[in-house]
Design a protein around this nucleic acid. Structure first.
Lengths: 216, 216
DNA sequence: GTCTATATTTCGATAGAC
DNA sequence: GTCTATCGAAATATAGAC
């Protein structure tokens, strides 16, 4: 019950998009970053609770004890991943929403970028989206703020589009949540063996969302 | 890090829809069903690996050892939950697709029912959708067949609608996956404190999906 | 069928040498 | 900063009385 989980979605070796999961490139020192990357992989494959600190250290090429030089607990690793991951995804959303154009252009850009991020960084995204419950109480509250911010940005855009008559939205909060669902769920099913490119999936989802708000 | 996870999404007591998660009503004997229901709750709250057999047994009002009279391993509990849950959701989808009407009617019925099931049975659905990786290899393969069946039914309907000109679908497989995303992801965010009723959410999502296929 | 008691394993985290 | 060695706690699962 261990090996097959790692190989389930494995495609041909080397078919992973280059430069994927670069969210942690700036983490130093080197050993701390390697541990973080090992933790991302392990948490995404097996989940936080099923991952051992030995496994994480091993992926980073270190002894079990070396982990505790850089992180006080296993949960602190998850917190770092969750925090940086959320910050990056909020950034992606914010940048896309800043493009020139009408509400439809900005919504399309936002969905395309957000979806693309979830596909390209699907390993990180899976941890970000599905391991929240393993965070400590205070860390969870902190992360929740970042998530609320994402949803708010999207809702404000839909609200603006509805007000100007560009969009036809019967249920603002429900539609916002549906758009988020469409983006976030990509992290669940996207994998190395997915044939479609992140770019393509982003474009498709942007088109589908525009239709959802009556601007297809 | 234990108590707050249980209380995070908790709304006022008693606001849970009555008769929720009735998928396991036919399981006998009584002790086996109580253990199964305890496992569903625990797995949904904390995840499979973070759940202890002591916790499951305790929720069923039994000693830790009593679990092993009815189930050989903790994984066998997950397997039962996953199998019955998938069978039920496939059934819901199949029944909805059998309604009288054109493709749009059937698609709306399918999405409304599928979403409603994921909301009403959100506890079971969360285990069904997010704990697959914890299954043993053979059990995982078995469950995958049921999941392929769901997606196939939906894809066939979209294909038919596109062929007859009722729908405008530019990417059949991609759109099918998006529709599934919209339905499945309800299990992630729906909770006891969600104000919207499952019925309402199903209706909204049906409307959004009809728009997605150019029939809004 | 259910209990109390426990065997066995494995985990997160620490101690102390280098 | 990294290692080897290990502690104490907690997990799954089993043994044997009732």
């Amino acid at each position: 019950m261990a090996v097959h989980e790692e190989q389930r979605d494995a495609g041909a070796p080397g078919d992973e998009a280059p430069g994927a999961d670069t969210s942690f490139a700036s983490v130093t020192p080197d050993a701390a970053r390697r541990l973080l990357l090992g933790a991302v992989e392990a948490f995404a494959e097996r989940g936080f609770h099923a991952t051992t600190t030995r496994d994480i250290a091993s992926r980073a090429g270190m002894s079990p004890a070396a982990l505790y030089i850089h992180y006080r607990t296993k949960e602190e690793l998850l917190h770092q991943i969750s925090r940086v991951g959320h910050e990056r995804s909020v950034e992606v959303l914010r940048d896309a929403l800043a493009v020139e154009g009408d509400c439809a252009d900005r919504l399309a850009a936002a969905v395309a970028s957000f979806v693309r991020w979830h596909a390209e960084n699907h390993t990180t995204a899976r941890v970000v989206q599905y391991e929240l419950a393993a965070l400590g109480e205070e860390h969870y509250a902190e992360i929740l703020q970042l998530r609320r911010h994402s949803e708010e940005m999207l809702r404000n855009l839909l609200e603006e589009g509805a007000r100007t008559g560009e969009f036809t939205v019967t249920d603002l909060r429900g539609t916002t949540r549906a758009v988020m669902s469409l983006c976030v769920d990509v992290a669940r099913w996207y994998g190395p063996s997915t044939r479609r490119a992140p770019e393509e999936i982003g474009a498709l989802h942007a088109e589908l969302v525009l239709r959802m708000v009556g601007r297809g």
